[in-house]
């Protein structure tokens, strides 16, 4: 299931979106599917310190642990909301990240490479 995020991009105004949308959210014109880049930088983040309400939240089999979420800015000019597989104390705005489609929401981890 792991792979590139499937987004879309408007042919006219170059606005990219995720997940893919049939029309451009800015101009309403047709948008084409595009595979988004797998690397980007962290635009903002937070940590979910308490268990969200279930349902809809599915508590992991190992029990709830605080987890981080954030927006990853990709070169296509789109910031994608992702679960961050990074210890909260190591998170900084601007850090390089690798993003993958993993069957659920997008997930991002430290890439270890400068982009």
């Amino acid at each position: 299931m792991e792979g590139a995020l499937s987004g879309s991009r408007c042919a006219d105004c170059a606005v990219a979106a995720y997940p893919a949308e049939p029309v451009c959210p800015r101009c309403g014109g047709p948008a084409e599917p595009v595979a988004l880049s797998a690397t980007g930088t962290l635009w903002t983040w937070t940590v979910q310190r308490y268990a969200p309400k279930s349902p809809p939240y599915a508590v992991p089999g190992t029990g709830f642990e605080p987890f981080a979420v954030g927006y990853v800015e990709l070169p296509e000019g789109v910031r994608v909301l992702a679960a961050l597989d990074i210890p909260p104390e190591r998170i900084t705005i601007g850090m390089p990240l690798r993003v993958t489609a993993a069957g659920g929401v997008p997930r991002a981890a430290a890439s270890g490479v400068t982009v």
Partner: peptide, 29 residues
């Protein structure tokens, strides 16, 4: 609920349908 916002169920299941996360991320930036 994710469906009321036109979102995939995964956003609820994975714990990203939490209003307070948005406010935190906006002020964090």
């Amino acid at each position: 609920r994710p469906a009321d916002w036109g979102l995939d169920e995964a956003y609820g299941r994975d714990g990203l349908m939490v209003t307070t996360q948005f406010f935190a991320m906006k002020i964090q930036r």
